[in-house]
Amino acid sequence: MHGLQKQSVLGDLRAQIAAIEKRPVLAEGAAMLRETAGAGFLVAPPGLMHEVHAEETRNAAMGLAFALGQARTLIKPERPAVFFMQLMHEAQQQGLPYGAGLASFGFDPHDLVFVRVKTINELLWAQEEALGCKAVAAVIADIGGAPKVFDFTASRRLAMRAASGGASLFVLRYGAGREASAAQLRWRIEPAVSGEMRFDPRAPGTPRWQVTLERNRLGLAGKTHETSWLSWKNGFELAGNRKRPPAGRVAGRGAALPGAVPAVLGRRLQQTA
């Protein structure tokens, strides 16, 4: 059996066992993170709570892009849905995910379920409810302000829900402040000058961001990566690694990520490729 194939089969089996035992995949996740950290960009295993911080709401799309990129690796046939939750009155400030934009980003817009609520309490309830569902791959919660209700206790509840349910939670936050939270991983996303457009040097090219892992309860924190998102390759790529061919790239499939499960990644793109 080919080495990579073997690895992905093993990974699948591990996830299945974890699902059967209903055990948090944290220990496993730590090992996986350590494994992937050296080779390329971190791909987080399911069942974790992430906080994705952007400096301002004008960077909202970057946080969302990062969360979607991570969430997409978690989509499996038996876990088909990703939830996006937002307070209704914050839609104008941060913007609503746009179907055509999702498609050009490489995320199937039909996988995304929108939950639009009026109050933060409803948002917390909806997150908890969705994380408990066995068919949800990830929940992305867009929280614009710094609501008092969303404190350490609330985040602890959510983190435990995520661990027991096996879905990942991405909380998108804005601003420079950091509140106490039980999230296992905390990322900071900053804009970076885009890559080059092949046919038009004056136009913006491949989107790039600076991604910093500020906190990692599973070990290994404080590393800054400059990351590109390559939608046609379906994955993150470290901007420094551009010369080398991406490690996980199997012919016909589009995984640029070590540790990611290639068959799941590019469902739509396989058909178009």
């Binding site: 909202a60 799309a61 969302l64 892009a65 979607l68 941060q94 913007g95 609503l96 995910p97 746009y98 055509a100 934009g101 999702l102 498609a103 050009s104 980003f105 490489g106 939608s231 739509r268 178009t272």
Partner: peptide
């Protein structure tokens, strides 16, 4: 998907 569109509208 080949048409560039913003992720958030």
């Amino acid at each position: 998907p080949d048409r560039p569109r913003p992720l958030r509208l």
